[in-house]
Design a protein around this nucleic acid. Sequence first.
DNA 1: ATTGTCATGTAATTAGTTACATGATTAA
DNA 2: TTAATCATGTAACTAATTACATGACAAT
Lengths: 174, 174
Amino acid sequence: MSMKGREVILGILQGGPHTGYEINDILQTRLSHFFDATFGMIYPTLKKLEAEKLVTKQQISQTDRPNKNIYTITKAGQAAFSKAISEPTSDEILKSDFLMHLYFSQDLPTEQVALFFKEEISRKEAKLATLQAQLATWLENGMTDRQQITFDYGIAYYTATLEVLKKAAKSIAS
Amino acid sequence: MSMKGREVILGILQGGPHTGYEINDILQTRLSHFFDATFGMIYPTLKKLEAEKLVTKQQISQTDRPNKNIYTITKAGQAAFSKAISEPTSDEILKSDFLMHLYFSQDLPTEQVALFFKEEISRKEAKLATLQAQLATWLENGMTDRQQITFDYGIAYYTATLEVLKKAAKSIAS
DNA sequence: ATTGTCATGTAATTAGTTACATGATTAA
DNA sequence: TTAATCATGTAACTAATTACATGACAAT
């Protein structure tokens, strides 16, 4: 079994107490190239973790901004996390809707396929730019050597696939 | 909305009638680097597609082997597929349990992290080898130019990430 | 005026996973 | 005798998605 939302959130909370909003932010900026999360998953998961006493909630009332809940990992939560992180890793999963469309695109006109390429290239370029932009602030906040590898992996992955995409887009158009 | 099991199976059936077993085989060999499927998904999906009259089932009795069901796409099925393939593509999703472990591995001993690397490298090398081995037979059975791109993409993806992994594995060990 | 930031949540649905169950034939 | 190939399915579960709902403040 691979690490799911539960374990990922526990992992983030091991780095200190956070609100659901902050957890989302960390997920979107630093882990977005190998995990994706939404508020629709984060809040219900925090609720379950609290019910299982793996985290505790501290409610903070604010006047200028909405009230917030700060979650802190408990001893039991740390134990659950330690167990999860020690388990063997499972297979990486890539789901590409673009490649799926391309694979079955035989009846589509060239222009439409060209548009799919254009959109996929834009998306990937944006993701690559976000990741590279993150590097500076991430380094300041203390990026470990191991985290640096996850960053390098993401950069290599986007760079290599973008190259294939750009070359193919040209050959399609001709 | 991206193409799900439903649409993928319809896409495969557009290439001709197939059994669930054959659909699985195509999925495992040609699309495995960007989609994953299991029998637990394939058979229930075929049943639903039949109920919705998007495919028809022909039962074949065999003596030497288990009986089988051959599924054929209907006009309605072709229409549903055409619609799905024309829709805009959605974001690619990568889920890496290995990177997740690595990201949160600060408290794990070097040896354990080294083992994670070793296993991830083996898995990726195996996937790369399978994909390259497929090329020959795939070309014989008529691989289109567009399908060739999905193949190139997979090769580039595995090659680039393997390089990062191997380099990092060395630096970790020292 | 409008967009972005901060901030939390629920309800309904869907899709997929995991585990189980069966069993003959063929090749190494 | 062990593994692989062929071949199909169900039941229970889990995880996540999608869509909805609310709302003030700050910046452009």
